[in-house]
Design a protein around this nucleic acid. Structure first.
Length: 118
DNA sequence: AGTATGACTCATT
DNA sequence: AAATGAGCCATAC
């Protein structure tokens, strides 16, 4: 994302909240755009979580964007990584297997912030 | 300034 | 079961 300006702090705060949640996803687990949006009280703003991920490559500390997939476990964001296989490779490194761009046994790897965080 | 386009999801055909 | 429409709202042009 562009450098945020003081007058544009609203969405930037939302992005930061997204990044904070994503950083809490343990290695070996995955979450979804919708679950994160819902946890932040913006249930219908899943697309904005995608935007936050798009912007997350440039920020520090690191955001494990590979751990966010869509609600079916599909790696919809893979083309935004440096290479079209990087997302899958990162997940595999963490023990999450991917076949046909989908997380294998997604249900058992799903990490829901609304459940895991209290 | 207005339209189009998504790293989405859900309800409705 | 698959397709469609709608809500979402920051960016891009």
């Amino acid at each position: 994302m562009k450098t945020p300006k003081p007058t544009h702090n609203k969405h930037y705060t939302f992005f930061e909240n997204v990044w904070d949640v994503v950083r809490l996803i343990p290695a070996g687990r995955v979450s979804t755009y919708g679950a994160i949006a819902g946890y932040l009280g913006a249930r219908s703003s899943a697309r904005m979580v995608g935007w936050a991920m798009n912007a997350s490559f440039a920020i520090h500390p690191h955001v494990p964007a590979q751990r966010v997939v869509n609600r079916t476990g599909l790696l919809t964001g893979k083309f935004h990584f440096a290479t079209d296989t990087l997302m899958q490779e990162l997940l595999l490194t963490e023990g999450v297997h991917v076949e046909n761009d989908k997380v294998v046994d997604f249900k058992n790897h799903f990490w829901d912030p609304a459940v895991e965080l209290n």
